[in-house]
Amino acid sequence: MSPFLQLECVNKSYPGPKDAVWAVKDISLTVGTGEFVAVQGASGCGKTTLLLMAGVLLQPTGGRVILNGQNPYALPSGQQAQFRAQQVGFVFQQFHLVPYLNVLDNILAPTLALNRNGGVCDRALDLAERFGLTKRLRHVPAALSSGERQRVALARALLNQPKLLLADEPTGNLDEENGQLVVRCLAELARAGTAVLLVTHEPRIGDHADRVLKMKAGKIS
């Protein structure tokens, strides 16, 4: 299994009232192609910060992030955005769907970044079908259940066929059934060759992961 994501001694601090607050401390982590890695930890332990750094959204204070053999933070910001659009998919606990776009348009939203339209609509419809959203294509997020919203978010994350999928508490707002559905889906994606990094505070989600890492106070134990 070739490494797709490599975090080398990355750390991140935020300015505090007196001293800097260290959210992530010297974490080294590798996620291989087709590997499903779960990071478990309590709220506030630095999981989301770790995920954002891995997703080329948050520059580490120290250390290096290597994605597909490349350090994306060395790229100019415009190219960083393109790199992110091509390589990374995100799923969040709060879904973060665009409220005024219907299901189909939300799934198609990543095309705005890549200006890629050929065949993408068919792929969006396939994803909608795969996640049981075919009958909800014209509905806006407010008209969907939490499970449906997360499935839309998942479909959106997969539209550009990312090589790395980052999931931040994807089951946090879902019931047991929908939560299991999402986790199974992530496991399937990993089996299909996508590197999946999931952060969660729920211990049982780790059952589906290839590796489970524990995170506490910004460190992985």
Binding site: G78, A81, R84, A85, Q86, F90, H96, A109
Partner: peptide, 16 residues
């Protein structure tokens, strides 16, 4: 704000 954040996360540039 949230929408801008997610669009940026999806790879949209600041210029867009």
């Amino acid at each position: 704000r949230g929408e801008i954040g997610i669009l940026r996360a999806l790879g949209m540039s600041g210029q867009s």
